[in-house]
């Protein structure tokens, strides 16, 4: 169910935040990465810091802000709560104007030692160590995909953060944070069997409102989480208990799986939780900002096999 985004309420549309000045024209590299294992315990700001260092290690031509203390420009999707794993994190990196070289017309000196890019697939991205041509193996994608950059970034990031896609997009459109409208989750409820979990899920879905309490900035806030729940189901069990999956709309507000668990089984703890997807919604239905590239998948399988 619910594979189309349906605005829940007229007044709940997220405001489309505009980018800082200077962003609109730049090409952006959109990177999809995971956050699994021990690294899930670092916070959002730490993720930004390690990403910034990885970009510098790879020598990606990412734009900096102007002013006294220039910072690397980057924009993430919805923040992942600390302690949660993810298969679908995104960061957009605006590139400097001189970053791309058209394979046919461009400065081919910069491409020394690199396969000449196919003009049909897209431009090459010039990094410190050399230029990266778009991948030839994924003709079905809309945007040029750079598997060698994905690989280099994975190598530069800490263990547990793997880059599964790096695609070039034009600079138009809202920021990822504003564009993401729905997230997919998978999470455990510790000590709850599948039957009990299914019963709790059915009860929650049948309810018109599900009011939960949470502490926000030192104050207890009561709110209805039911409008955000698009999909909720039991999908199996793990060593710890039932495993559920959910698709939660980012409007009217972003709901965390832990809030679902406290509504479903107040006396049970949540085990591991993993974000599986972030979706944007457009005229053509919902879509992920970037899907895992098959090249990157293949590399991962080769490594693990």
């Amino acid at each position: 169910m619910a594979h189309d985004a349906r605005p829940r309420r007229a007044g709940a549309e997220p405001q489309c935040r505009s980018h800082p000045r200077g962003w609109e024209t730049a090409l952006r590299l959109r990177v999809r990465f995971s956050k699994t294992g021990k690294i899930r315990f670092i916070g959002h700001r730490d993720v930004a810091r390690v990403t910034e260092r990885a970009v510098r290690k790879v020598g990606l031509p990412v734009a900096y802000s102007e002013g006294f203390s220039p910072r690397m420009r980057m924009s993430f999707g919805l923040a992942l709560p600390t302690g949660y794993e993810s298969d679908g994190e995104f960061v957009e990196l605006p590139l400097v104007d001189s970053a791309v070289v058209d394979g046919v017309a461009g400065d081919t000196d910069a491409l020394d030692g690199v396969d000449a890019p196919s003009a049909a697939r897209g431009p090459a991205i010039v990094c410190r160590g050399g230029a990266h041509a778009p991948c030839e193996h994924e003709p079905e994608l809309d945007a040029p995909s750079y598997c060698t950059i994905a690989e280099a970034l994975s190598e530069a990031l800490p263990v547990g953060m793997e880059v599964s896609a790096a695609v070039l997009t034009d600079g138009r459109g809202p920021s990822l944070q504003a564009a993401v409208r729905m997230c997919g989750w998978r999470f455990e409820i510790v000590g709850l069997d599948e039957a009990a979990a299914a019963k709790a899920v059915a009860a929650l879905l049948a309810a018109g409102t599900v009011v939960t309490e949470r502490v926000h900035k030192g104050e207890t806030v009561r709110s209805d989480i039911r409008p955000s729940v698009e999909v909720l189901q039991v999908v199996g069990r793990s060593d710890l208990g039932a495993v559920l999956s959910a698709e939660l709309s980012a409007t009217p507000r972003v709901v965390r799986p832990s809030e679902l668990v406290s509504a479903l089984a107040p006396t049970h703890d949540m085990g591991k939780a993993r974000r599986t997807h972030q979706w944007t919604c457009g005229a053509a239905g919902r879509a992920e900002p970037a899907v895992p590239s098959r090249c990157a998948q293949r590399q991962k399988e080769t490594l693990s096999g």
Partner: peptide, 8 residues
């Protein structure tokens, strides 16, 4: 300064 815009 090792060349390339990423190493400004």
């Amino acid at each position: 300064a090792g060349g390339g815009a990423g190493a400004d």
